Simulated scan of single mutants.
Amino acid sequence: MTRLDFAGVGIDIAAARIVSDVSLHVAPGEMMGLVGPNGSGKSTLLRSAYRVLRPAAGAVFIGGENVWDLSAREAARRRAIVTQHTVLGAEFSVEEVVAMGRTPHKGMLDRDGAEDRRTVEQALADVHMGWAARRSFATLSGGEQQRVLLARALAQEAGLLILDEPTNHLDVRAQFEVLDLLRHLGMTTLTALHDLDHAVSYCDRVAVMAEGGLVAVGAPEDVLTPELVHRVFGVRAVLDTHPITGRPRIAVASAGRPPTRARTRDHAADASAP
């Protein structure tokens, strides 16, 4: 397992500072949730860790080494990523998709060997998708595809997993399946999450971003207080214990006045009744 550090990271896009002075560490084996409103800089920060956006200030360290000092191959051996949108040709089988994770460990002309095949098989078993090895990736459901992409990341045998909204566009059951799997893996994990309740229920710690900066970091129940949630997200929040799982949970509601259109129609119907 690998430690991840952001040290004073600033990121510019089109001459505008999008992320400013972010310092954050993810400890080995920790599951860290990155939360914040749309446009807060979450995805931009993640892209600096997987070498898509070079920081204009500060640095990102994986295992104590600046990720931008590593070769692309070496960086891929140290960290695996799962992004929001992965487009693959319909001709790829599930097994072939997962085998792509072995690329950083092979030469340009190397064919898959016995060790590669064992690693792919084990990765599929870990995500409970071995039954679909010969299926076309394109024929799977969204949740199944996300599991396969996680298997591809596992096949890289990297010490760090970075995910950008891994539950986006998934139905309720698939969301829980993916999050349960991430929790079970026990890898060093940094994941951007849209749902605050997922962050509270599954993450060891959360980092809250707003307007390109880091607002707070700590245990979910300590950081996502009603006051902070209202200030950053503009909604009301209540923290309590989930009656089924026994884990902390957060419930949110609009901070404004609830809609009145339906209620007005109801009152009109009542008034017209004899």
Results as ranks from 00 to 15, higher is better:
Ala125Asp: 15
Met209Ser: 10
Leu160Met: 14
His25Pro: 08
Pro166Asn: 01
Arg77Tyr: 12
Val26Tyr: 04
Leu181Asp: 04
His105Glu: 07
Thr189Gly: 04
Ile250Phe: 11
His194Trp: 09
Ala76Ser: 15
Thr83Met: 12
Leu190Lys: 05
Pro248Asp: 08
Val120Lys: 00
Ala237Lys: 01
Ile62Gln: 04
Leu45Val: 09
Leu34Asp: 00
Asp222Gln: 14
Ala253Asn: 02
Met31His: 02
Asp195Phe: 09
Arg118Met: 14
Gly58Asn: 05
Val208Asn: 04
Thr188Tyr: 09
Val82Lys: 01
Thr103Asn: 07
Val206Lys: 04
Glu177Trp: 08
Val232Thr: 07
Ser141Trp: 10
Arg51Ala: 10
Leu228Glu: 12
His105Ile: 08
Ala14Arg: 09
Ser71Ile: 13
Pro55Phe: 04
Leu179Val: 11
Gly186Val: 04
Arg3Phe: 08
Arg54Met: 09
Leu24Val: 10
Leu182Ser: 07
Met100Arg: 05
Arg231Asp: 14
Thr86Arg: 00
Thr241Phe: 04
Ile250Trp: 00
Ala123Tyr: 00
Thr44Tyr: 05
Glu144Cys: 06
Glu157Met: 04
Arg265Met: 10
Cys203Leu: 06
Thr245Asp: 06
Asp204Arg: 02
Leu24Lys: 05
Gly36Tyr: 02
Leu224Gly: 05
Ala114Asn: 10
Phe176Cys: 08
Glu227Gly: 03
Leu4Gln: 05
Met129Ile: 01
Thr241Val: 15
Ser272Asn: 11
Leu160Trp: 03
Thr2Trp: 11
Arg173Ser: 14
Ser201Thr: 15
Arg261Glu: 15
Leu70His: 11
Asp126Pro: 07
Val217Glu: 02
Ser23Glu: 00
Thr103Val: 13
Ala153Trp: 02
Asp197Val: 12
Glu177Ile: 10
Phe92Ala: 04
Ala192Thr: 01
Glu211Cys: 08
Gly63Leu: 00
Thr191Ser: 15
Ala49Glu: 02
Ala59Leu: 03
Ala16Tyr: 03
Gly143Cys: 05
Ile162Tyr: 02
Val98Lys: 02
Lys106Gln: 13
Arg205Glu: 01
Ala174Trp: 03
Ser254Phe: 09
Gly143Glu: 06
Ala14Asn: 07
Gln84Phe: 07
Asp266Val: 10
Ser40Arg: 01
Cys203Lys: 12
Glu65Val: 15
Lys106Asn: 10
Arg51Leu: 11
Val235Ala: 06
Arg51Asp: 06
Ala27Ser: 13
His85Trp: 05
Gly212Ser: 12
Gly36Ser: 13
Glu121Ser: 15
Asp21Cys: 09
Pro248Arg: 09
Ser40Trp: 03
Ala268Trp: 01
Leu154Cys: 07
Phe92Ile: 06
Ala15Trp: 13
Asp180Val: 07
Ala16Pro: 00
Val22Glu: 04
Lys106Thr: 12
Glu96Arg: 06
Ile162Arg: 00
Asp240Lys: 13
Gly256Ala: 10
His194Gly: 02
Val229Glu: 01
Pro104Glu: 13
Gly33Asn: 01
Gly107Asp: 08
Val97Lys: 00
Met100Leu: 15
Asn66Ala: 04
Asn66Asp: 15
Gly41Ile: 02
Met32Thr: 12
Glu65Arg: 13
Trp131Tyr: 11
Gly36Leu: 06
Val67Glu: 03
Val206Arg: 07
Thr189Cys: 09
Leu163Gln: 03
Phe61Cys: 08
Met100His: 15
Ala59Gln: 12
Asp164Phe: 05
Ile250Leu: 14
Ala158Gly: 14
Asp197Pro: 11
Arg73Val: 10
Ala199Met: 02
